[in-house]
Amino acid sequence: MSEDKEKMISEAVEKALQGDMDAINNIEDRITRSKAKAALAKAKRTRKTEEASSEESEISEAKVEEKLNFSQNVCKKIAEKFPESIDKEQNKDWIQLKPENWLEIAKWLKSNESLYFDSLQCNTGLDLGEGILESRYNLHSMKHLHKIEIRIKVSVEKPDIPSVEEVWRVADWFERETYDMFGINFIGHRDLRRILLPDDWEGWPLRKDYEEQETYHGIVVPKVKEGWE
């Protein structure tokens, strides 16, 4: 193919891309015309994929940013609704709350349309030492597929946290286990008994200052095995 014809084809394709299809249709040579049409189709295809990829990357970047700041956004929303209950120290990965209004916040988190945390995935207890216990809640939304972590600190002297067992039914056994191991009282729980250990066990085993009882129904509970027979 001569250079003239190539030049002609590229000019015609450019005109066609701007909407002037006659530029191609008016080419008299049949072979050149069909080549120009093929070049047009190719040009259209590459343009489409370029546009799509640029749009996608914009969306995903926005999503990542939203996900990174999601916990903080939720924290702000809670702060607007319940200004008293946000703890002073905060982290971008979780939300630190005070125990007082926890039941109302939980109800609101579940019922709010844009948050809709309908699933409590886990509730863990922790002994942070220095007389502070912590209860952590991992919430997930089946509708919006987002999740947050909520942490509530209480002191050993008064380990009271409102129970969310009536909000998420699964919290029933979670809270019983946390109560069993750490002795955190979940106020308002309808059936707060020990779940793993026997009912008449003494002490809270996973606390840092736990000491085993001497005997259990006449059976020796050895603290150190040495010298014990």
């Binding site: 250990l197 085993p205 736990y210 085993e212 059976i219 509970v221 050895p222 150190v224 095995k225 014990w228």
Partner: peptide, 10 residues
């Protein structure tokens, strides 16, 4: 659970 199992009968 010989040494650290508070809940296990030895």
């Amino acid at each position: 659970y010989w040494q650290h199992g508070y809940h296990v009968l030895k």
